[in-house]
Simulated scan of single mutants.
Amino acid sequence: MPTPTPQAVLAPLTEAAIFLTYTLDGSEDGAATVRALLADVGGLRRSVGFRIPEGELTCVVGIGAHAWDRLFAAPRPALLHPFREVTGARHHAPATPGDLFVHLRAHRMDLCFELAQHLTDRLAGAASVVDEVHGFRSFDQRDMLGFVDGTENPEGDERAAAVLIGAEDPSYAGGSYVVTQKYLHDLTGWNALSVEEQELAIGRTKLSDVELPDDVKPSNSHVTLNTIVDEDGVEHDIVRDNMPFGRVGAGEFGTYFIGYARDPGIIEQMLENMFVGKPPGDHDRILDFSTAVTGTLFFVPTVDLLDAAADDEPVPVGTAVPSDSSSDSSSDSSPDSPPDALPDGSLAIGSLKGDLG
C-alpha cells in the first residue's frame, strides 16, 4: 500500500499567512460543491503558486466534526470532535462555529490573498466565511507581547512524530488535527508591567528568549502550563504556527494560535492547564492580558483523501448527526478503549487515564 501524503502541515513559518474559517449551508448541493472544492485544492494552489515559485505558497485544509458527518459516508477520524470549551474561575476558552478551515502560508501576502479568493469563490452558496485573519511575521518571530513565539516546536523527525497520525488510526494515517484560537491582547495593561514581571508570566527572558530556571519560573507561567508530561515522564509536543495580527486604528492587537498535533488531547490538556489551572485556580498569568474569542478543532486529511473527496457520498439532509453533547464522545477514545501505541512505544496522550478529563 502506498504511503499517504500529508498536507503541508510541516511547512516552515513564513512572512505571511491567512486563516479562513467557514461554516456550511447544510444543503445537499452545497455538500457536493464543498467535496468538489476539496478535491481541487491542490490544483488551485499549484495554479497560484507556480507564478511565483519562490513565494513557497502552501495550503492546509481542515474539516470539522459536524461537517465530516455531513460530507462523508466514512466514519470520523478517531479523535475528531467539536472543540471543547474550557471555563476556569476567571477565564473562558469559548467554542465557536467552524466547519472548514484553511491555513494559507507564503513569503508574500498576495499569494495567500489570491488563493483565498479562489477558494472562497468556489464555495459561494455552499459555505460562508465566519472568521478571517491575516497574519504577519513580526521581527524575529515575536508576538504582539514582544516575546519569541514557537521556540519549543519540535525539529527533524520529532516534528513529524508529533503531528502525523500513525498506526493508532490506520485509516487516517498521515493526517493530523489542528486547533485554532484567536486571542486579543490588552497591550496597555501588559506594557504597564515591568520586563521582569512579563518574563515571569511567560517563563522566558524577553530579549534572549532563554527559558527561566525551574526554581525561578512560576507555576502559573505560560511555559510551565504548556509543558505536557505524561505519567511515564514522556513530554508530548505539538507544532505551533502562531502569527500576530491586528488593526492599529481599531486598537486590535492579537495572536492567532494554531496548533497541529497527532492527538488533540495534548492541546486540550494545555488549555485545561491554562484556563482552569494546575492546580485549579492557578491559571495562566498571560490570560489576564489575553482573551480567547474563538475556538475550533479540525481534522487535516492527507492529500490522497482530499483528492478523492469528490468520489465520496454526502449524508442526506435530515440525517441525524451527533450533537455537541456527550454523544460526541462516541467518536473519541474512551477509558475502556485499548491504549493507542505510538511508534516510539509510548501511549497517545488522549488515551492516558486521568490526564485529559
Rank of each mutant, 00 (worst) to 15 (best):
A74H: 08
G88F: 10
F72E: 02
G49V: 05
S27E: 09
L57I: 04
C59M: 10
V86C: 13
G26R: 05
E114T: 04
V61N: 09
A16I: 07
A39R: 08
A36M: 09
L20C: 03
V60R: 00
T120R: 06
G26L: 08
G62S: 12
R105D: 00
P53N: 05
R105H: 05
R76S: 14
P97Q: 04
H103R: 00
R90A: 11
F19M: 02
F50L: 06
T21A: 14
L104R: 10
P2W: 11
L80D: 01
G30V: 11
T33F: 03
T21N: 11
L115V: 08
A31K: 13
T23G: 04
F72S: 10
D29A: 15
P75A: 12
G62T: 13
D69M: 08
A67C: 13
A16D: 11
P94Y: 01
L37A: 08
L80H: 04
P2G: 02
D121E: 09
D25K: 13
S27A: 03
E114H: 10
G30Y: 12
T87F: 01
S47L: 05
H107T: 06
F50Y: 10
A78I: 09
W68P: 11
L10E: 06
I63K: 13
R35C: 14
D69K: 09
P75Q: 13
H66R: 15
D69Q: 12
G62F: 12
E54M: 12
G42H: 03
L10Q: 01
A16L: 04
L71M: 12
A17Y: 01
G98C: 03
P4F: 09
G42P: 11
R122A: 12
G43S: 02
